[in-house]
Every structure is written in C-alpha cells, then in structure tokens.
Computed example of a mutant assay.
Amino acid sequence: MTRAGLLGLTVCLVTGIAGFPSEGTPPRIRVSPTGPIFLCPEGQPFHPWGFNYDRDHRGRLLEEYWEREWDTVAADFAEMKRLGANTVRIHLQVAAFLKGPGEPDATALRRLRRLLRLAERNGLFVDLTGLGCYRRTTVPAWYDALSESDRWRAQATFWRAVARTARSSSAVFCYNLMNEPFVPAQPRPAGDWLAGEFGGFSYVQAVTRDPQGRPRAIVARDWVRLLKQSIRAEDPQALVTVGLLPERRRTDSFSGFDPEMMSRELDFLSVHLYPDEGRLSEAMEVLDACRSDRPLVVEEIFPLHIRAENLIRFMREHADQVAGWLTFYWGQPPEELAAEGTFAGAILHDWLVRWQLMKPPWRR
C-alpha cells in the first residue's frame, strides 16, 4: 500500500471510530463520480476488505447468541479488526426482526443499534444484509403464506425499520437487500420461497413464486426499486446493493438479476464468487459480466474448490476490476484453529493468515 493510500484508509477508519450524534445522518462512504471506486467522506479511496460474519463455528446464526453471549460478539469484532478488516458483513434474519407483516421487533432493533456502536468503536464498517431465511425451521409460517405483493410490503417494513435504526451510525457501509435472491423461470409451489441447502442453511431465496409471464429481469428491477425506496426514505445517503448469484455453469446469467440493469438501479454491484481450480476462465467471465461504471465488490470468496495460493493469485490479477473483497470469519482466531489439530482447522487457519497479510489496494 502506498503512503497516500494508507493515510486515506486511516482517515476513513477514524471517521468510523468517531461516531456521530444520534440525530441526522452522518457522512457516509460514497461512490466516486469519476470512476468505479468508493470514497471516504473526506475523499480518500476506500477498499472494502474483511469478513462475512454470518454464523459461528458451532453453526449458530448471529441472532441466536448475540443476546446471551455479547462478549463473544465483541471479541469476534475485535479479532476481525486485528486480522485486517475494515468491513464486516452481517446477515439479519426475518424471523428475528419481524413479528408480523407490519410489526418490526423492537428488541432486535435495539440489539442492532448496539452492534453498530460496537463496529464504530472497532473502526469497522458494516454491510447490512437483510431478509435472511437461512434456517428453514424458524421462518414464520405467516411470512411464507404471503402473496408476492404482501411479502414485498413486509420486506419493505423490514428495511424501513432497519434503516431507521441504522441511519445515525457512522459504521454503515451499505444496505444489501437480500443474500442471493433469484427470480424463478417457472412457477413454484405455494409457500416455497427457498432453494437448496448448504451446511444446513438455505441461503438462496426467491423474490416471487410466479413471474406470471414477466421477464425475470423486470421482476428483479421492480423488487429492487421498492426496497431501495423504502431504505432511502429513512436513510437518504445510504448505499444500496444486492448479492448477485451467478447460475451454475452459466456465467451470463445471475438468477434473473441482470448485472447491466442492476448497475443502473444499485449504487454498486456485489457478486459471490467461488472460483474452481480447473475453470478459472468462468470466474473471469463472471467478473467481466459485472463490469460497469459502478464499483464491484466480491462480497463472498473462499478457497472451496481451489488452492489458497491460486485464489490469491486470481484476486491480485483482477484487482483493477474489483473495488473490495470479503471472505468469512466464524469466531475462531487462527491460534485456536491451529491448536485444534484438524484438517479443516488447518485449512481455515492458513486462509486467515494469508488474508491478514494480503490487505489491498494492489496494482498489477
């Protein structure tokens, strides 16, 4: 990192530590008007770098332990900062934040406010990803029974409540409408909004059960517009994005969310990318498909199907296309993983150590 870049990032993080009065919206990270990069309030470049904090190593979602084990959350945020993060992506669940279609949960919102204060103290920015239904067994029956229009209204209620809670925090980097949404090509059964399962969690969610002849991209656009409007009504300076999921074996399709159209609707593009050792050309095509005049953040990346050193090489080779990168932290520091003596622990330990040493920006 150059001296100027280090100074800019330091100033940006100090802004995050300082905090702001409870009234009004503080200055935020913004998109540069002259290119696909982020800027701090003072004008220095900002490169999102850090972790998804979606669960812990015991398989518990954040809302399942953040009340009784707040010290664990605080320790994890401090550790992510020590590992070089400036950004943490958290995943908020519908079941925790909505009691009913029009009734936000005040207790969860207070806990979110406390989490944002924790981020401020640690000099961390937060990617607030919402509308999670990761644990099928806890998704409210009333939520799955809603029609498309009523479900969208409930989702707008969720986002208005979250944005109203977060708007006074200097720690907010962005609002991410949903993790890996999709528009189905064909009608789905009544109440069936989730697709697939990974590690016991359902990360992929439909925004409609039946497109009713509408182009998939138009459904996606209308959904994004409604929720973005809901957020901006409470937090006008907010950056809004959505985590795009490339369809398997089709790098030209993003589950109904057309990147070109999304670049006109969103403040920046986010994509989830897990390169395959033998098919790096496909990962490159995904990045190329997301090229626009907006910044691109790879907000999920991890060496699932590739050696860590090759993934790092891939990231460095595409540094000019990507404004920021986020991997995963599940609550175990490298020292604890090394002491486990397990194969999985050794792999994760190696990756976290490499990640800590690899902090951007880089230039080829």
Rank of each mutant, 00 (worst) to 15 (best):
Y53Q: 02
A339P: 02
R113H: 13
Y203P: 00
I29R: 02
E336V: 15
R264N: 10
P21H: 15
F268C: 00
G199W: 09
H91N: 08
E285D: 13
F51S: 06
P21C: 12
C174Y: 04
R294T: 03
E64D: 14
S270A: 01
L348T: 06
T129D: 09
R153A: 15
F158R: 00
A154C: 11
P215M: 03
R291P: 00
R214K: 14
I29K: 09
P26Y: 13
I17W: 01
R110P: 01
V31C: 00
D276M: 07
T327A: 12
A119K: 01
R363G: 01
Y143V: 00
R55G: 04
A145G: 11
A141I: 06
G102Q: 06
T157G: 04
E335F: 13
L83W: 05
W351K: 05
R89M: 10
G324V: 08
R135T: 14
I218M: 02
L311R: 11
R264P: 00
S147H: 11
V88R: 01
E335R: 15
F201S: 10
R221D: 07
D105H: 14
T157R: 04
G16E: 05
S253R: 14
M262G: 05
R294N: 07
A166K: 11
L92A: 11
W330S: 04
L357I: 10
L245K: 05
T137I: 07
S169M: 10
A283W: 04
L326R: 01
S170Q: 00
E277F: 07
L311S: 08
Y134W: 15
L311Y: 03
F254S: 04
F328L: 00
L348E: 06
V94K: 07
E148R: 13
K359V: 11
V183Y: 12
P27K: 02
W362R: 05
D293I: 10
I29V: 15
R55T: 12
R117S: 08
H305N: 07
I17Y: 03
I37S: 06
L13H: 02
D293N: 13
H272M: 06
F257A: 03
